[in-house]
Amino acid sequence: MLSSKNRWIGYWFIAPAVVTLLLLVTYPLLYGAYISFFDTNLTTKWDFVGLKYYKEIFSNTEFIGKILLTLHYTFWVVAGHFVVGMGLALILNMKLKGQTVFRVILILPWLFPEVVVGLLWKWLFNPLYGLFNAVLMGTGMIDEPISWLGNEQIAFIAVIIVSIWKGFPMVMMLILAGLQNISEDIYEAAKIDGCTRLTAFRYVTLPGLMPVMLVTLILDTVWWFKQFTMIWILTQGGPGNATNVVSIDIFKQAFDYFVFGKASAMAIIVFFVCYLMGYGYRRLFGNGND
C-alpha cells in the first residue's frame, strides 16, 4: 500500500496548474459574473441591479446581430484555417526535401504578436501608401486607390483574410502532428486492398485525424469568436458596424461608455455561447463517448 506521503505526491504535481487556473481563469470569470449584477464604476459605486443588463441585452436586437456577425466572421475564418492548414499539412507530410525550412517559414504568422500582424496588414491596406494599391495601380489593374478598410463590404473580407493568414499555422501544425501519428502500415494495407489516394484519404486519413481535428476545431472556433486585438487595430469595428463583432462591442461598453456591468453581462453570454459551440462540436463529431 502507498504511504500517506506518497499518496499526496500526485496532488503536489498538479497543484501549480490548479492554482494558476483558479487565479487566471476561474476567479476572473466569477468576478465578471458578479460585476454583471451591478451598476458600478468598479471603485465607489456598486448599485445592485439584478438581471437588468441581461434583460437589456436579450431585448436588444443589435446585440443579437453582433453575435450573428461574429458567428459569420468565425465560420469563414475557421473554414479558411482548415482548408489552408489541411492542404499545407498534407504537403509537409510528404517528406519533401527542405520541408523543415518551409515548416519554419509557414509557422511565422502564428509566432508574430497580433498587434504586429494588425499593424503590418493595416500598412499593406493603406489607401495612400499601401503596398496592395501600389502594386495594383502599377500593373494597371486599378485606376485609383481602393479604401480596403474604409468600405463596408471590403473591410469585412479584408479582416477575414488577415485572420486566416494569422491563424492557419496552428491548424497546420496540429493536423501535421495528427498525420504523422497515423501508422504507415494502415496505408500499406489500404493500398493492398486497392484503395486509391482519394479513398485512403477518406477512409484512413480523415478517421485517424478526427480526434485531433475535433480539438483543433473547438480551440480555433473559441479563439477567433472572441478575437479583439487585430480587428480593433485594423478597423475598430468600422466602417459603420461592418466589423463590429461582439468583442469590440464589449470593449466599447466597458472603456468608452464605462458601463462595466453591462459589458460583464455580455462577456458572460459570450462565454456560454463558446461553451455551447464546444458542446455541439463534441456531440456532432465526437466518438460517442462524450
Rank of each mutant, 00 (worst) to 15 (best):
M137P: 00
I161H: 05
L119A: 13
V162Y: 00
F75H: 10
V83D: 00
Y73C: 07
P145Y: 04
P109T: 03
L111Q: 08
V101E: 00
T196D: 15
D143P: 00
G85C: 11
D185I: 05
G138Q: 01
E152N: 07
G118I: 14
C195I: 09
A89R: 11
I192T: 14
N133K: 04
N93R: 13
I192M: 14
G138I: 12
E152T: 15
L149S: 09
W165C: 03
V162I: 07
E114K: 12
V117I: 15
I192C: 06
P109R: 02
T100H: 06
V159Q: 05
A134R: 07
L106S: 15
D193L: 12
P169L: 14
Y129E: 05
G98V: 05
R103M: 13
I175S: 06
I161N: 07
T74K: 10
G150L: 09
I182R: 02
N133A: 13
L136K: 01
F75L: 11
E184K: 07
I164F: 02
I142T: 11
I154E: 00
L106A: 15
P127F: 15
V104R: 13
G98S: 12
N93A: 15
Y187R: 11
P109N: 02
G118W: 14
W110N: 05
M86N: 09
A134Q: 13
A89C: 10
G194A: 12
V135S: 03
L119Y: 14
I164Q: 07
S147W: 06
A158Y: 00
F75T: 13
V171D: 05
V77P: 03
M86R: 03
L108N: 01
L136T: 13
A134E: 14
M86Q: 02
G138D: 02
T196Q: 09
L149Q: 05
K95T: 02
W165N: 04
L106M: 15
K166L: 11
E152K: 15
G80Q: 12
G138V: 14
E184V: 09
F168S: 05
F112W: 08
L179P: 12
V83A: 03
W123E: 08
L92V: 11
G87E: 00
A155Y: 00
K191H: 08
G98A: 14
Y129N: 09
Q99H: 09
I142N: 03
F125W: 13
L149M: 02
A189R: 08
M173N: 03
S147K: 07
V162S: 06
E184Q: 07
A177S: 12
V115H: 02
V116W: 01
S183R: 05
L174C: 09
A89G: 01
L88N: 02
S147V: 08
F112R: 01
V135N: 02
E152P: 07
I146S: 01
I146V: 14
A79R: 04
G98N: 15
D185W: 03
L124E: 06
L136G: 06
M141E: 15
G167V: 04
S183E: 08
